[in-house]
Simulated scan of single mutants.
Amino acid sequence: MTFTSALRKENEDVFQSIFDHNFVQGIGKGKVPKEALIHYVKADFEYLNAFMKVYGIAISKSTTREDIAYFTEKINFVLNSEVHPHNNFCEQIGVSYEELQGYPLPPTADHYIKHMMYHAQQGSLGEILAVLLPCPWTYLEIGQELVKTYKPTVDHPFYPWISFYADERVETVVHTMRNRLDQLAEESSPQEQMGIKNAFRKSCQLEWSFWEMAFTCEEWVGKKEVVTASE
């Protein structure tokens, strides 16, 4: 069994919780509250911006041109391709994508990004891949599960979203990330492997929390206060 196959097996409980989440099942059924979709797109736009920055940190830690090219390719995918599922959500709620950009992060999204940045700054390339991999991997399996369960056709309101994440392009992203992580894990010490496993599991858990954050329209507790320079 490969290292990433073992990771998937160890985190089956979290993957299943993600598949069962009301937001995810709502996508399959074609019924997600408008407010939840808005909250999701606002947060995910900023999350993906941070995701690309983590790839940038990976580039700075790369020692070969092959790795530099690899992470650059991944940035291009997020930058130029992952706008399509966002646009599908925006079309369904009648709000332009541009209107949902530039908002402060809700607590869970804020925590998730700081979790990624911590491992990117403090960890190895293996930890960086481990902290990023649950995002495309869970989305790939979500897309595949929704296709299998609901068999959406082109008239399904979220058909573009589902078909995007079930597509071979995302499968290729996951496949190449898994292969590179398997290589790096093989070269790592047992202690380093434990750090990789912990980073991966927490990202899986935060993927579930991200869906919950969007579905409940999570906000920071307390009234917003403006702090001026004089204070």
Rank of each mutant, 00 (worst) to 15 (best):
Asp13Asn: 11
Gln16Ala: 09
Phe19Asp: 06
His21Ile: 04
Gln25Asp: 04
Gly26Val: 10
Ile27Cys: 03
Ile27Phe: 04
Lys29Leu: 12
Lys29Cys: 00
Val32Arg: 08
Ile38Ala: 04
His39Arg: 11
Val41Tyr: 04
Val41Ser: 04
Asp44Lys: 03
Ile57Gly: 01
Ile59Ala: 10
Arg65Cys: 03
Glu66Gln: 15
Tyr70Met: 08
Phe71Ala: 03
Pro85Ala: 04
Pro85Lys: 07
Asn87Pro: 00
Phe89Asn: 03
Glu91Ile: 00
Glu91Pro: 00
Gln92His: 10
Val95Cys: 01
Tyr97Ser: 05
Leu100Arg: 08
Pro106Asn: 10
Pro107Gln: 05
Pro107Tyr: 10
Asp110Gln: 10
His115Asp: 07
Met117Phe: 15
Tyr118Trp: 13
Ala120Gln: 04
Glu127Cys: 11
Val131Ala: 08
Leu132Met: 14
Pro134Glu: 09
Cys135Phe: 09
Trp137Thr: 01
Thr138Asn: 11
Gln144His: 10
Lys148Thr: 09
Lys148Glu: 14
Thr149Cys: 00
Pro152Glu: 11
Pro157Ser: 09
Tyr159Ser: 11
Tyr159Phe: 15
Ser163Asp: 14
Ala166Ser: 15
Ala166Asp: 08
Ala166His: 11
Arg169Pro: 00
Val170Ile: 15
Val173Leu: 13
Val173Tyr: 12
Val173Ser: 02
Met177Asn: 12
Met177Glu: 13
Arg178Gln: 14
Arg178Met: 13
Asp182Cys: 04
Asp182Tyr: 08
Glu186Phe: 05
Gln191Asp: 12
Gly195Lys: 14
Ala199Ile: 08
Arg201Gln: 14
Arg201Met: 00
Lys202Asn: 09
Gln205Tyr: 01
Ser209His: 06
Ser209Thr: 00
Met213His: 03
Lys223His: 12
Lys224Leu: 12
Glu225Ala: 09
